[in-house]
Design a protein around this nucleic acid. Sequence first.
DNA 1: TCCGATATCTAGCGACGCTAGGAACAAGAA
DNA 2: TTCTTGTTCCTAGCGTCGCTAGATATCGGA
Lengths: 190, 190
Amino acid sequence: MTIQARRERERAEREQLIVAAARQLAESEGWDAVTTRRLAREIEYSQPVLYSHFKGKDAIMAAVAVEGFTDLAARLHEARTSAPDAHRALADVAAAYAEFAERHPAIYDAMFTLAVDLPFASPDTPAALQDGFGELREVMRPLVDAGDLETLTETFWSGLHGLITLMRGGRLRPQDHERRLALLIDRYSP
Amino acid sequence: MTIQARRERERAEREQLIVAAARQLAESEGWDAVTTRRLAREIEYSQPVLYSHFKGKDAIMAAVAVEGFTDLAARLHEARTSAPDAHRALADVAAAYAEFAERHPAIYDAMFTLAVDLPFASPDTPAALQDGFGELREVMRPLVDAGDLETLTETFWSGLHGLITLMRGGRLRPQDHERRLALLIDRYSP
DNA sequence: TCCGATATCTAGCGACGCTAGGAACAAGAA
DNA sequence: TTCTTGTTCCTAGCGTCGCTAGATATCGGA
C-alpha cells in the first residue's frame, strides 16, 4: 500500500518534471529545441520513459498548454478583480492577456497555435481552459447586451488573439501596438 | 542567345511547377504531406533539383504564400469594387476574406502562420502582400477618421484573422461563426 | 536467498531536410 | 565528325527526428 503510494507519487513527480522541463526549454529556446532526446537528457532519464507518461510529443505539448491556461486564467482574474470599474477592468484584462502572450510566446503558441487536439468549447473542456474564457466573459458582462455576451466575448477575444499573432509574425508595425490595443478596447467599451 | 533563353524559360516553368505542386499537395493533404521527397516525386524530378530552385523547404512554402497573397488581394478587390456602398463593401470584403481562409486553409497558414520570414510592413514587402492590406485599408477609408485609418485597418484585420484562426483551431463554437463576423463588422462600421 | 514482476535502458526503424560527388548530356572547337 | 569542356541532374548518404521492440537491471515478497 505505502510502497505503491510512494511509487505513484514519484511517478507523478517525474511527470511534472517532464512538463516543467518541456516548458522551460520551449520558453528559452523555442519548441524546435524541444526534441524527445533533448528532453530526456534534460530530465536525466532515457527517451522511452517519456512515452510511459505521455502518448507522444504532442501530448507533452498539450500538458504544457494546460499549465499555460491555468496561469493565464489567474493573471486575467487578478487583473479583472483589482480594477476600480468595468471599463478599466476590460483594459486591464486585455493588457494582462497581451503581456502574457508577449512574455511567454512559446507557451501561447502551444495553447492556441500548435496543440490542436485539446477539446475546446465542449463539455469535457478542462477547467483551466474554460476559466480563461470565463474571465473574458465576466469582464465583458457589464458592458454589453446579455443576449450577445458569449458571441461578443468570442469576437473580442479573437481581436486580441489576432493582434498578438499578427504582431509576433511581423505582420503589423510594432510601434503601434499599444494604440491598436487601445482602439480594440474602445470598440468594445461603449 | 536563344538557347540560353529557352533554358531559362524551361527553368522558370519548372520552378512554377514546383510551387504549383506544393500548393496543390498542401491544399489536398496538408503541409505535413509536403515533404521534399514527395514533392520531387510529384514533379517527376529528383530531390536535389528543388534545392537548385529554392534555398530550402521554407522558401518553397514562402513562394506558395506569395501566390496566396496575390489571389487574396484579387478576391478582396473584386468584393470591394462591386459593392453598392461603403458599408456593404466592408461586409463583402470581410466575407471574401473569411471565405478565402476557409476554402484554402493550408495556403492561409503558409501566408500567416508558417512562413515567418516574409518581409511585412516594410519597404521591401512584395507588392502582392501590400495589395491585400491595401484593399482592407481602402474599404475602411470612408468609414473612419483619416488619422486612425492605418491603425484601425490593422485592428480590424486582426479581428478577422483571430476569428479565423481560433475558429479553425476549434477554439470557438462553429455555429456562431456568421454572427461573430457580423458583430465584428458592426464594431467597425458606425 | 531466490523468484517474479516491474521499471528502465540500449539499440534500431523509417522518414525527415539537406548535400556531396559522380554520371550523363549538350554545346562549341578542331 | 570527333573531342573537349562545362552544365545539369541523379544516386547515395549524413545527421536528426519521433517512436518502439527486446534485453537488462532492480526491487518487493515468499
